[in-house]
Simulated assay, not measured.
Amino acid sequence: MAHLSRASSAKTHITDVLDTYLKDVEQPGNEAFLTEVGSDGEDEKFEDKADSFDLEPVNLVLESEGDDSDTKSQTEELSRCSSSDYETDLETDFEPEPKLEDLNGTELYVKLCEQLGVVPLSCVKSNMQKTHFHMPHRGIGSKGVQALAPPISRSTCARYIDLTNNMIGSDGCSHLSLIVNSNMFITDLNLSYNQLGSRGMTVLCLPIRDSSSLVNVDLSNNEFEDKDAPLLSEIIENNISLRSLNLSKNMFCIEAGKVLGTAIANNDTLEVLDLSWNALRLEGAQAFAKGIAGLFKIKIDKA
């Protein structure tokens, strides 16, 4: 009986659905559909449709709920990745390079050598933290001194700078002037045998003249001529810290003897002036001797 009751109820439900559907179909414009559907097959057709109406919407809702949950979990996972691992990788891979002013002397020298295409000298690295920066006969050249100048100008250790015979030339004098202008701890500067010439003397004159720390300066064998004597006289007359100046083995003649003699007469602090191996001749020597007349403190070496 129970089975019959459920079957009767299902049939009643199907009949109701069929009636509703027929009412909708009978609306104006649906007459063609009514003529195609026969009365004998109506129950079977719409019974199948009624069954599908009851089941399919439920399945669709369930699938939709499952998709939402999967999408939500994937979104949460992506959010966790983007907020942790991804940002950390970016920070690690793109660390900014340190600025030149933040590097120590050796690091700065190596970095500048790379930029200038110069091979760094290992002896420079070992001398960078010493008071005696002893670098003679190394063939540094103008580009090499360009890489050396910034770290030496910042050094608080260097007191004695020896760059003897390094082929610096006049092109490197602008970098040497940076050292003299910037570093107030250097007391001894040896630039002998570097072919600085007249153009180099023009660049170095003011920095050496205005230095308040230099005590001993060696400019021997740098191809200075008579026309460079007025620049050197500026140094002699105005630098009161200088005690020793070596101008030997240059190309000074009579006129240089006269100019330097006048300059030395106006200086009472210089103790040693080396003019050996210059062609002052008799006239130049006499003019120079007049300049030092009455000065007993200075020691003169001339030839």
Rank of each mutant, 00 (worst) to 15 (best):
G200K: 05
H13L: 12
L4E: 08
N221R: 10
S9Q: 07
M128V: 03
P230G: 01
V118L: 03
H13G: 08
M135K: 04
G169W: 04
I264P: 12
E101N: 08
G172T: 00
I235R: 05
N266A: 13
L178D: 12
I168K: 06
I179A: 06
D226M: 04
N166D: 05
K11A: 11
C123L: 13
D68Q: 08
D43F: 10
T71L: 14
D19Y: 09
S177I: 11
P207F: 13
T269C: 11
D43W: 15
K249Q: 09
A289K: 04
V119I: 13
K299T: 15
M251R: 14
T75A: 10
S177F: 06
G257I: 02
Y21L: 12
L108Q: 04
F53Q: 02
N250C: 01
T187R: 15
R80P: 00
E237R: 14
H137G: 05
R199Q: 14
C113N: 01
I152G: 00
V217G: 07
C173S: 15
T202A: 12
L206P: 02
K49C: 04
P136K: 06
L231Y: 04
S170G: 10
T35C: 05
D228N: 08
Y109S: 00
A263N: 00
S155K: 04
V58G: 12
L219R: 02
N278C: 08
I300R: 08
D171R: 09
N216Y: 09
Y109V: 00
T15I: 15
L280H: 02
L295P: 01
I240E: 13
S83Y: 01
A2W: 12
S177Q: 11
K72W: 10
P120D: 00
E225V: 15
C173W: 08
L163K: 04
A147G: 02
C113P: 01
L121H: 10
L245N: 09
L22C: 10
E255Y: 03
E76N: 06
A10C: 13
P57W: 06
P57Q: 10
N59W: 14
G105V: 04
Q146F: 00
M135Q: 07
S84M: 00
V272D: 13
L116S: 08
F296E: 11
I161H: 02
E26T: 13
D85I: 01
L206H: 10
E77P: 03
I140L: 14
S276V: 12
G29H: 02
L245R: 03
F252R: 04
S241Q: 10
L18R: 07
T35K: 14
E101F: 00
I186M: 08
K258F: 11
R209S: 12
